[in-house]
Design a binder for these strands. Structure first.
Lengths: 156, 156
DNA sequence: GTGAATGCAAATTCTTTGCATATGA
DNA sequence: TCATATGCAAAGAATTTGCATTCAC
C-alpha cells in the first residue's frame, strides 16, 4: 500500500476532508513516524520541500488527528509538544529521558500486561493510552556524575 | 514539627537562602501537597493571604525547588506545568486523566517493583523518577460514551 | 455553489530575563 | 557589608483565534 493510499484511507475512515495541506502534514508524519516531531518541525519539513503551509494550519490539523487517535501527543517537559504517528504494527514503547543531556531513549515492555483490568477494577477507569516517562541519567552522564559529586554545594 | 521548622529544615538541608517570598512559596506548597498546583495557583494563593509576591519570583523559586528534588513537575498536556510537593511519607502515585472531563485520579502501586534494575540492565539507564500518566475515560464519562456512539460521525 | 479550510497577523498564555532596588546572612 | 533575591515590565516561545480569501466535495 503506497503512502497516498494510506493517507486517503486515514481520511475516509476518520471523516477528515482531505485538503492539500492536510495531506502534506500526514505525509510528513508518516515518513517521520520513527521520530517525535513538533509543530515547528512539521512546518520546517514541509517548507523544506518547497511547499507552502501556515503554522496555524498545522496546529489545526494536529488537533484533529490527535482527537481521532491518529497522533499521540507527548509532553516531555520542555514546553513544546511532540507528536508521534500511531502505527498499528509498531510496538508501544515508553521513554527514558536523561536529566543531564536530554537524550530520549525508547524502551518497550516496561509496563505489565494486565494493567487495563487492574486499573478498571480498582478505580473504574477505562485505560486508552499509557504515557510513561522515566527521568534519570543515561550511562555516559551518570559516569560524569559519580566522578564529580552528586550533591551540589552551590548556594542559591 | 511545625511548618516553620520544616521550611527552615528544607532550606538548610538544600542550601537555599530563606527569603520571605521563598518561605511563602514553600508554605503554600506544603499546605497544598495533596493537590497539583501551577505557578499561577501559588501566586493567587499567596495574594489571597494579602501577601505580595511577583510571579517571576515564583517561577524562580519553583525552578530551584525542582532542581533540588523537593518539587515534582507534571506536564498534564494543557500547556501549564503543575507542581507537587514531595513528601517522603506520601506514597508515590501515578495519574489517570479522563479525556472527557479532565478529572485526575491518583493511583498507587501500578508500576512493578523491580523497574529500576530492569531498565538499568536493558538500557544502562539510571531511573530517578517515574511519571506514568494513563489517559482514558472515568466511570461516569464512559457511561455517557457508550450511550452515545463512540465513533463520531462529525465531518471535519 | 457552499460550507469548511487556509493564511496571515494579531492575540493569548505560560514562562523567562534584564535591570534597578531591596534584603538576608 | 555585599552577594544575591526581588519586582516590574518587557521579551520570548508555543499555541490559538478572527477574518477575508480560497478550495474540496
Amino acid at each position: 500500500m503506497n503512502i497516498n493510499k494510506i493517507i486517503i484511507d486515514i481520511s475516509e475512515k476518520n471523516h477528515i476532508r482531505l485538503t492539500h495541506q492536510r495531506k502534506k502534514v500526514i505525509e510528513i508524519l508518516i515518513s517521520n513516524s520513527n521520530r517525535h516531531v513538533s509543530a515547528e518541525d512539521i512546518y520546517t519539513l514541509i517548507k523544506d520541500k518547497d511547499d507552502n503551509i501556515g503554522l496555524a494550519t498545522i496546529y489545526r490539523t494536529i488537533k484533529i488527528l490527535e482527537d481521532k487517535g491518529i497522533l499521540i501527543r507527548h509532553d516531555f517537559g520542555n514546553g513544546e509538544a511532540k507528536y508521534e504517528f500511531v502505527m498499528k504494527e509498531k510496538e508501544k514503547h515508553d521513554h527514558l529521558i536523561c536529566k543531564q543531556c536530554g537524550k530520549i531513549i525508547e524502551m518497550a515492555g516496561i509496563l505489565p500486561e494486565n494493567l487495563n483490568q487492574k486499573v478498571l477494577k480498582e478505580k473504574g477507569f477505562y485505560c486508552k493510552e499509557f504515557h510513561l516517562i522515566i527521568y534519570g541519567y543515561c550511562d555516559e552522564c551518570n559516569n560524569v556524575r559519580v566522578n564529580q559529586s552528586v550533591h551540589s554545594k552551590v548556594k542559591y
